[in-house]
Design a protein around this nucleic acid. Structure first.
Lengths: 330, 330
DNA sequence: TTGTAAGCGTTATCAC
DNA sequence: GTGATAACGCTTACAA
């Protein structure tokens, strides 16, 4: 491994000078700069980030904590974050929490131990002490907190829209998948939907789920049609669940959207590719990731940015699992 | 931030002693150990990994390089890697290469600058100089190399199986999606399929694709049915492409699998949930990730492990997009 | 304009 | 058993 000393020796100057040209601060004569740059190139030297980080007490690393990258919604968030960070030369230490508080705490700890400059987390425990104690910038992603800036979508509004669309498009026996109780966006969506359903006086049933795993989604989908065979509309807790419901409905020989309408949430890439394609409440996941990264970078660069959160708009995407309204068919 | 010095002062001993109890090496009296442990707990001290890393010239970090986490196949690999690393207290620095050599090289460089102990990469350029020069363990994942250990699936065999199944189940006008030329597994699959197709003398057409993006998959799917309307069987380059083909076929009013059979590769989680569910050549992605991590850990722990690669078995998964054979329907 | 040296938080060597 | 202390590779006062 070639160090700054090697370069210094090779170039016939002191390490301080090397450091100066590297960081472009302090005076350095044009001639010596050239010599140094040549030496750096010839020795193929790149500075050791660890040593830098130790001295400065901050690295070029960002901690990113997601529930489960295996859920197709999160890779998009992650890409948004990464692409923006890339531009600023920041890298990611990454971990899946599986929504376990312990795992989450462990990751946060190693993030800190590695001198990350900031943490972006999609957590179910934004109020926890181990977050409060952090002295570095934290941005919550797809989650809300009163202590810290956050980037999230308007789940409540999404729920409302889903319910309205269901009703406008003719469903009268609606099942709502509630999603895990501890996942805030899931509950927001649920509440938004129920709000409208109650106001409108439409009959609805609630199916509680404990997780966002595909396995559970499949089980709940089966149960749903056993418990409530009359259902003619399903508001799922996310697209994966919606696709599971769609699959089960078709398996049972139901016609979609004629017999039963389905609306998901997120608009994951494959939603468009199932058949019929899935109507859904779109959350701009990639952009949310980007925004979170943007916010983080602001926070890093000048820490007097006021606590500001960003709510992203949601949007109904009409596709094949909901019926066409009269005025749309014109 | 509380450092080892603070703990030393608080416990009334030297930093050396703290270090000894931390690392459980060297002699330390039972009594002082207790005092130190108490101090550590009370001050809530955790050692700074950066300082450790600087001294030891190796961190507890692994670099993980994937083409694009947004492709549903890769999150599974990533989870496999992560879960195994977790067990050994190793963390991941993560990057998407987008199959760009430049981005890849940049990531490798920052991995090295951060003293990672090893690199796991799903790269299209395993032979590149910047890999050869690395002095730390490298494991290639879902890719093959003669220089370094690798964990990969038998794509060639997968391609053969796909073609055999297509033929056995009655397709006679087969289209094969070739996949990007620079992606080794895609070419292996393609060659395997063509091998069988040629041997059998069945008519087949080739559709070349340049990337694994969903966008392109959709475009190619449309083109396919325009160029070769008689096609009654499609071997896709991966499940995403297969699902795009399925979607297009249904849109055109074709019956699947009666009019046209489709086989994908990978068995991503959603393959089971499209309708009809997708027949595919399964690659055990999660396990591959785990194996790669396992291999890496061996390499780290004793570097005299002989260069060994692991080929994982592939397997045909019969689902809804291929017809049932006579003997299966019994 | 450049060099010397202290210090970032650890670990490991060597005295005691 | 325990404590000083050099060293890891870098940055930044401060001197020269």
């Amino acid at each position: 491994m070639v160090t700054i000393k090697d370069v210094a020796k090779y170039a016939g100057v002191s390490v301080a000078t090397i450091s100066r040209v590297l960081n472009e601060n302090g005076y350095v004569h044009e001639d010596t700069r050239r010599v140094v740059e040549k030496a750096i190139k010839e020795l193929n030297y790149t500075p050791n980030e660890v040593a830098r980080s130790l001295y400065k007490r901050k690295s070029r690393l960002i901690g990113l904590l997601l529930p489960d990258i295996t859920n197709p919604y999160f890779p998009q968030l992650a890409r948004g974050v990464e692409d923006r960070m890339q531009q600023s030369g920041l890298r990611l230490i990454f971990g899946n929490s599986d929504e376990s508080q312990q795992k989450e705490q462990d990751y946060i700890q190693t993030f800190v131990q590695n001198n990350v400059v900031g943490i972006i987390a999609s957590t179910n425990f934004p109020g926890m002490d181990f977050y409060r104690r952090l002295k570095i910038p934290v941005v919550f992603l797809d989650r809300i907190s009163s202590d810290r800036p956050a980037v999230y979508a308007d789940g409540r509004e999404g729920g409302r829209i889903a319910a309205q669309q269901m009703i406008e498009r003719g469903s009268r026996q609606i099942a709502v998948l509630q999603g895990p109780a501890h996942v805030r966006p899931a509950q927001d969506r649920f509440q938004g939907a129920v709000e409208v359903l109650q106001d409108t006086g439409v009959t609805y049933e609630v199916v509680q789920t404990d997780s966002f795993t595909l396995d559970e989604a499949q089980r709940r989908a089966e149960e749903l049609f056993v418990s409530f065979p009359e259902t003619d509309g399903v508001i799922a807790s996310n697209d994966m669940a919606a696709i599971a419901v769609l699959h089960e409905a078709l398996r049972l020989g139901k016609k979609v959207p004629e017999d039963i309408q389905i609306i998901g949430f997120d608009d994951i890439p494959l939603s468009e590719l199932v058949s019929p394609s899935l109507s859904t409440i779109r959350q701009p996941a990639y952009d949310m990731g980007k925004q979170a990264a943007e916010l983080m970078i602001q926070l890093i660069e000048n820490d007097d940015v006021e606590l500001k959160s960003i709510q992203m708009p949601v949007q109904f995407i009409q596709r094949g699992t909901t019926r066409i309204k009269a005025e749309e068919s014109i």
